[in-house]
């Protein structure tokens, strides 16, 4: 327990001093702010594009457009940034050998994994919440209101997907060695899930739906019930990934 607390503190210090926290917070905040703005400006942007002969009529943007933008940005660029920021957290230490001394001091290998996962999920939660609150604020500023149907559940789904991804990153770091191996493996896992999503019978369970169906939720095209299966599989897979990481890391050569 002592080791876990000490190592978690070290993780936070690392995130701050290696600018990981700064990067993540800045980027997610920008997405939170830019999404409602982009939605609001869409008609202006389109009207300034020279379109010959055709006149496009764009409906007046609504709050829903703002949130659709938010989820689009977050689930794509946001997730990529999370991947980039956290993908090396374990593998880099293994390659460099910085874990040798703490472990020789009696730090348990479980504590390494759990500290890293805990610290990364706290960062993700904090910066994501900040982005969400920012988006609420600016949506309110631009549209006069910010609430949308299933908004909170939708936000939760994407958060859970992020938490799942962080667990995948952790597992990838224990399986593959090298600086970019973990990143690559996580990307492959993501690609496979996206590919599998084509099959309608499976996609009910696919974690990817948590990041892709947010807009459908907002537009009332899907209900909370439609996504509950995916929520549970994602949660189970997250726990599974963590348990596997703990087991595999125990035998990892340092």
């Amino acid at each position: 327990m002592n080791g876990w607390i000490a190592f978690t503190k070290k993780e936070f210090m690392e995130q701050l001093r290696s600018y990981k926290a700064l990067t993540l917070i800045a980027v997610l905040f920008l997405f939170g702010m830019a999404s409602p703005l982009l939605a609001k400006m869409m008609p202006v942007i389109f009207s300034q594009m020279p379109v010959q002969g055709i006149s496009i009529t764009i409906p007046k943007p609504t709050i829903l457009d703002a949130w659709v933008q938010f989820f689009k940005n977050m689930s794509q660029m946001g997730i990529i940034v999370v991947l980039l920021v956290f993908s090396g957290t374990l593998s880099r230490e293994v390659t460099k050998g910085t874990l040798v001394l703490p472990i020789s001091k009696g730090l348990s290998r479980n504590a390494v994994i759990l500290s890293k996962y805990f610290a990364s999920i706290i960062s993700w939660t904090f910066s994501y919440a900040l982005a969400g609150v920012t988006a609420c604020g600016y949506t309110f500023y631009l549209f006069g209101r910010f609430s949308a149907p299933h908004l909170f559940f939708s936000l939760f789904c994407l958060w859970l997907f992020g938490a799942f991804l962080l667990a995948v990153i952790m597992l990838a770091g224990t399986v593959v060695s090298g600086n970019y191996g973990g990143l690559l493996l996580t990307a492959v896992v993501l690609a496979v899930m996206l590919a599998v999503n084509v099959f309608p019978r499976i996609n009910k369970w696919n974690p990817v739906t948590l990041a892709s169906d947010n807009s459908s939720l907002l537009l009332n095209a899907k209900t909370v019930g439609d996504l509950s299966a995916a929520v549970w599989t994602t949660f189970s897979l997250t726990v599974l990934c963590l348990i596997l990481s703990l087991i595999l890391f125990r035998k990892k050569k340092l």
Binding site: R17, S18, Y19, K20, L22, T23, A26, V27, L30, V81, L84, V85, R92, K96
Partner: peptide, 16 residues
Amino acid sequence: EILGPILYFTLGKGDD
């Protein structure tokens, strides 16, 4: 702008 520093911090920065 913005993208440059992010790329630097995530990919370019050497390990301390």
